[in-house]
């Protein structure tokens, strides 16, 4: 009985699934999906090598300090970094005094201890990076209704993290002349327009991004360590810095991982021989009968 009901139920579900398949296949055959510019002209991030890549990667502290400088002088005008505290900068190789000085260069919201009014004060190491806007509505209002995302986790919140950041901020193109594999965007999609207030960027999922090109000229930042601040250099450095902000424990994680794996391989080897040993002593079949 169960089997008869089962067969009936199974046939019904299969029939409906196949019915959906027939309709789907018919629709796909008669009305194929239109190719879209987002699909045809979106680019995967360009390759980028950072010192922190790979299972043995380590932070390049000089580069992270340069990246911090780029964030501070360029990105922080619009983007917050709210999960990072100034005290975390000590991990970039700054001394305690330098961290204090770096924190004091920022203005954070505070409360007047006498009146209770909101006010501002210089940052201290325990403060977190302040947001450039008091709230999300203000951020939208100031940016053509597109809220600049917090950057603390940006490289973990996007596929290809650091490479995406690097490709995006250097990836602005002119849609009129943009080509992929010899195919021109304007030839394939003559109607493609970048709306006013947006900027064409093939590394952004829908090709039109609200962020204006952040790095426009070489030397936009004057590096403290004398490195030549080309656009390529600045974008690489800030990608490295944002890889660090997303996961400050990244290098420590891998460094913990190697001894753990080594120990486990050793212990599992022992377990293998112990298992063989135990099973070699299996009672003989003839003795038990």
């Amino acid at each position: 009985m169960i089997r008869l009901i089962g067969i009936a139920v199974g046939l019904v579900f299969s029939f409906v699934a196949l019915l959906a398949f027939v309709f789907g296949a018919y629709a796909a055959a008669t009305d194929p999906a239109e190719p879209t510019a987002e699909h045809e002209f979106h680019l995967a991030p360009r390759p980028l090598h950072l010192a922190s890549d790979g299972p043995f990667g380590k932070w390049d502290l000089q580069q992270l300090q340069r990246g911090y400088q780029v964030y501070k002088e360029v990105c922080s005008a619009c983007h917050s970094l709210k999960h990072v505290a100034f005290r975390d900068l000590a991990q970039l190789g700054y001394t305690e005094a330098e961290v204090k000085a770096a924190a004091a260069e920022w203005t954070v919201p505070g409360i007047d201890p006498n009146t209770g009014e909101t006010t501002t004060r210089p940052g201290t190491p325990t403060d977190y990076f302040p947001s450039p806007y008091p709230n999300d509505i203000a951020a939208r209002a100031a940016n053509n209704n597109a809220s600049p995302p917090d950057l603390s986790l940006i490289t973990k919140a996007r596929h290809d993290g650091g490479r995406y950041v690097h490709a995006l901020i250097t990836g602005y193109r002119d849609p009129a002349t943009f080509e992929v594999d010899g195919k021109a965007l304007k030839m394939e999609f003559p109607d493609f327009e970048t709306p006013t207030g947006l900027y064409f960027n093939p590394y952004f999922p829908n090709l039109n991004i609200a962020m204006p090109p952040p790095l426009t000229t070489d030397g936009q930042v004057t590096y403290a360590d004398g490195t030549k601040a080309t656009i390529e250099q600045m974008s690489t450095d800030v990608a490295a810095f944002l890889t660090w902000t997303a996961e400050p424990t990244l290098v420590k994680r891998r460094q913990t991982g190697w001894p753990v794996l080594g120990f486990l391989i050793f212990a599992t080897g022992l377990a293998w021989f112990a298992k063989k040993n135990v099973w070699a002593a299996k009672p003989k079949q003839t003795e038990t009968v």
Partner: peptide, 18 residues
């Protein structure tokens, strides 16, 4: 029942250390 030998003690000790 059976003599514990070195390799088994080592394996159990490794599990303990872990």
């Amino acid at each position: 029942v059976r003599r514990r030998d070195f390799i088994e003690i080592a394996a159990v000790s490794a599990a303990g250390v872990g």
